[in-house]
Simulated assay, not measured.
Amino acid sequence: MGFSGELVFGRSGQELLDAPVFGTLPQEVRDAAVAWRVRPGGWRTLAFGHGLWDDPDAVLAGLVEWTAAPACLATVFDSQVAVVKGLVPGGPDWQAYLNQDAAARLWVEEPDDVADGAAWTSTPEFAEAVVHARAEIDTAVPAAAEAALAWAKAAGLSPEPDPAPVEHVLRTTGAPAEALFTTLLDTLGFPQG
């Protein structure tokens, strides 16, 4: 089993875990939070266990408000897939999937008339549904790459204006989702620790 949980990325002059949005977590959860990656300039990634928050969007908004800087949150499922959401102070958010093949398989809609979901995953109908789900996810990649670049620019970085490298990361499959998250931040120009 791989990692399942949230990777929270933000910038702060003090410990990111001191953000009030994390203050409601039980102490044992706070103690178990891992400073997963520290980057120059006060950028940090914290790793939390899965399912801590009913509303991850509110957590992200609270972190952005407290830090007055862009932040993002990646919800990772068994190291296979991640949903990444980024937000800037007073600005729009963006969302992308990491490891789209796994995302398509995980979130393909099961028809109402299927009696055995496990058996359905080995049918040609399931395979066709995955192809359609993957295509739908892929259509959002160019807009997500552009939004991620704008988010990085709002963070004070000077990322390359070419979205192709970001699109490439968003279309990469087969790697652990946490590794793709790190690669995405690297590609957006965040300083590497």
Rank of each mutant, 00 (worst) to 15 (best):
T139M: 06
A104V: 03
M1A: 06
L60R: 04
A61Y: 08
Q100M: 13
V76T: 11
A69C: 10
V76A: 09
V64Q: 04
F126M: 07
V34Y: 03
T183H: 10
G42Q: 14
A164D: 11
T123N: 01
G49E: 15
L25T: 05
D93C: 06
D55N: 15
P92H: 13
L52Y: 15
V76F: 10
A58M: 04
T139E: 13
D18G: 01
L149D: 09
W66Q: 12
G117I: 14
F181R: 01
E128W: 12
H132C: 04
T67W: 07
A164Y: 02
N99L: 05
K153H: 09
W120P: 01
G2E: 01
A144I: 00
Q80W: 03
W107A: 04
L157P: 00
G156K: 04
V38L: 15
W53R: 15
Y97F: 05
A140F: 02
Q27V: 13
W94T: 10
H50L: 14
T121N: 08
E146P: 00
L73Y: 08
R134M: 02
L170F: 13
E146D: 11
A129H: 01
Q14C: 01
A68G: 13
A150S: 06
A129L: 00
A143R: 14
T24W: 02
D31Y: 07
I137E: 02
H168L: 10
P163L: 06
F190Q: 05
A47Y: 11
W151Q: 13
G62A: 11
A71Q: 07
V21E: 07
A118R: 07
T67S: 14
L170C: 14
D116F: 10
A58Y: 05
A179W: 13
P40C: 14
V21Q: 04
A61M: 09
E28F: 11
A68R: 14
T123Q: 02
A179M: 13
L157Q: 07
K85P: 04
P163N: 06
D116N: 15
W66V: 10
G13Q: 06
T123W: 06
A147G: 05
A129Y: 00
G189M: 14
S122Y: 02
A144Y: 00
P56E: 07
E160K: 03
G189F: 13
L184G: 03
T139H: 07
T24L: 05
T172L: 15
S4M: 01
A69H: 14
A82I: 06
E160C: 10
L17W: 03
G174L: 06
A155V: 08
T182W: 08
G62F: 05
L180H: 05
W53M: 09
A19L: 01
R37S: 08
L63V: 08
A144H: 00
R44I: 08
G91T: 11
L157V: 07
A33K: 03
E167S: 10
A135T: 03
E160I: 07
L185D: 08
G5S: 00
V38F: 08
M1W: 01
L7K: 00
A155C: 08
V169E: 06
D138M: 03
